[in-house]
């Protein structure tokens, strides 16, 4: 029988033998086409709990698959493969292999939160997307995302000095994400600053950049923040079963 819905079948699961004879009958070519079974044979019950343990994923178990999130989705409008409803389902059932097929687009969520306001069960799909992208990184399925690089530089700056050192964060971000430091918009910005800023402020900025002074009394506050962050990270690693592997 011809396969009517080839679009539903992954090409790698379609098998055709160029030359095949069964009981003396030549069934070479498309006559012998068959579809490899891709039966789901078990549920990974840990997966939903792993996502739920990451910030944003807490309400994933509420989902009843209505599809409001995907219908509301900004990214889905551009790329129909971007389907939060489907991913939530895969996670809830623990179909990890299936989820990993889409690992390179899951992080593309733009956090517009249209899904958040469409969801009748308050699943907060935007949070789930964030948690899932985070999960993919922590599990090593995807490299660090640009936003993770940014978060790390930002975090380092705060913990170290108690200040947001914008210039340093920006430069580190460009470096880590492999972008050229000489960006026309950045050069225009710097030129503008140099031209318009009073000399005193420019000198102070230069001094701050080199010396990196801390906010007064920051040593203890910074240490407390760092402790808290490490504690949360350790908790997440535990929830994901990463602490045993290490």
């Amino acid at each position: 029988m011809p396969i009517h819905e080839k679009s539903l079948i992954r090409p790698e699961n379609l098998v055709t033998n160029d030359s095949l004879v069964i009981d003396g009958v030549d069934v070479s070519g498309h006559w012998s086409t068959f579809i490899r079974a891709r039966t789901i044979t078990d549920y990974n019950e840990a997966m939903e709990e792993e996502i739920a343990a990451l910030p944003g994923g807490e309400n994933i178990h509420r989902c009843w698959q209505c599809g409001s999130c995907t219908n509301a989705c900004t990214v889905n409008a551009v790329n129909p493969e971007f389907n939060p409803r489907y991913w939530i389902y895969l996670i809830r059932q623990g179909l990890e292999e299936e989820l990993l097929r889409d690992k390179d687009i899951i992080w593309q969520c733009v956090s517009c939160n249209k899904c958040t306001y469409a969801c009748p069960r308050d699943v907060v799909p935007e949070g789930v997307m964030k948690a899932t992208a985070h999960w993919l990184e922590l599990k090593g399925h995807t490299p660090k995302s640009p936003s993770t690089h940014f978060d790390e530089s930002f975090h380092d700056s705060i913990v170290r000095t108690g200040k947001i050192e914008e210039g340093r964060i920006l430069l580190e971000f460009l470096k880590k994400t492999g972008q050229p430091l000489r960006q026309p918009w950045l050069e225009a910005l710097v030129r503008g600053l140099v031209k318009r800023f009073p000399v005193f402020y420019l000198m102070r900025m230069g001094w701050n950049t080199v010396m990196r002074p801390r906010t007064r009394g920051w040593r203890r506050a910074g240490a407390a923040i760092e402790d808290y962050v490490q504690e949360r990270k350790a908790g997440q690693a535990r929830a994901l079963g990463l602490d045993q592997e290490a």
């Binding site: 079974a37 891709r38 039966t39 789901i40 044979t41 489907y86 059932q93 179909l95």
Partner: peptide
């Protein structure tokens, strides 16, 4: 058949 992923299931 899990109709939402359009896949057959055999679950213990």
């Amino acid at each position: 058949e899990d109709t939402l992923v359009k896949r057959p299931i055999t679950i213990p």
